[in-house]
Computed example of a mutant assay.
Amino acid sequence: MDVVIEKDTEYELTATMQQQVRQLTLIIEPTGSTTDRIKRIEGYLSGVAGTLDFSAGIHATPANVELQFAKIASGANAGKYAATVRLLGVAGEQQKLNAIIHFTGGNPKAMSLGSDLTTELAAFNADKTKPLTLGGKVVETPTGADFSATITDWTPGNGEDGEDGSAGMETNH
């Protein structure tokens, strides 16, 4: 708001704070015979807003943000992998998860993981006070080399009471 302040006059003004950062948690549930050999999952999310024009509410400058997935040790999501980031919002035409699943001893070889999250994050810039959790399920991890995977059908959930969501994951070789 614009306010005119006169000299030697006291004013009481109240400014309402608006949260401009929203928390996003991605949960991946691997299944299959090689899940016990997963060493780490790392990657990035593209199409993240690098700038925000507060006055106009415009999210711009699409950028990538690093994701480090950690294995969840307890609770309803034990055994799954989660990455949590706080973002200004999303920008650009596409938001995509690009990750690599690394296995102990290099067997099987590292597997590429890609997923288009554009639809699931379309309304991400609204209601920033509410964290968003998306869950995706790996139907089968590879037992051989040179596999890649794509998560489809991400499901929103809260990630705490078993409603973490799940999605189908197709493996391609």
Rank of each mutant, 00 (worst) to 15 (best):
K130C: 05
E12A: 15
P62R: 12
I41Y: 01
I58H: 00
K109E: 14
T61N: 12
G106F: 10
G162E: 00
A63T: 15
M111R: 06
N98K: 10
Q68T: 15
V138T: 08
V90A: 00
T9F: 03
V138R: 01
F103W: 04
T155E: 04
P30K: 08
V4N: 06
G162N: 07
I58G: 00
A83F: 00
K39N: 13
G50W: 07
V4W: 04
Q95L: 02
Q94F: 05
V48S: 03
N64L: 05
P62H: 08
A76C: 03
K128R: 13
E160R: 05
F103R: 01
K130M: 09
R37V: 15
K39V: 11
L67V: 13
S55I: 13
K128A: 06
V90F: 02
A167M: 05
E170F: 09
G165P: 00
P30A: 12
Q23I: 07
L52S: 03
D146S: 11
A60H: 01
L24M: 09
A110P: 14
S166T: 12
Q23Y: 03
M169H: 05
A73P: 01
Q94V: 10
I41F: 04
I58V: 10
K109M: 12
S74N: 02
Q95A: 00
D53H: 04
G32P: 07
P156Q: 06
T31C: 06
M1C: 07
D153Q: 12
E10H: 12
L13P: 03
P142F: 08
V48P: 03
K137H: 12
V21P: 05
V3A: 13
D36P: 08
D127L: 09
K137T: 15
T155S: 13
V65P: 01
T152M: 12
G159W: 00
F54C: 08
A56L: 13
G168L: 04
T143N: 14
L13V: 13
A99Y: 06
A76M: 00
T104N: 14
G162Q: 02
A78R: 02
G89F: 05
G165Q: 02
T35H: 02
L134C: 04
M17T: 08
G114Q: 09
L117K: 01
I41G: 03
Y11R: 15
I41E: 08
L121A: 02
T31Q: 13
F69I: 09
T143K: 09
L67A: 07
K130R: 13
E160A: 11
S74L: 01
E160T: 14
M169K: 04
G136T: 05
S33V: 10
A110Q: 09
Q23P: 03
G50L: 09
Y81F: 15
G47T: 05
P131S: 05
V85L: 00
M111T: 12
A70S: 07
T150E: 05
S46Y: 05
E93M: 09
G159L: 00
S112A: 14
G79I: 02
E170N: 07
G136V: 07
P108N: 11
T34R: 08
E42K: 09
D164E: 08
T34H: 06
K80S: 10
G92I: 11
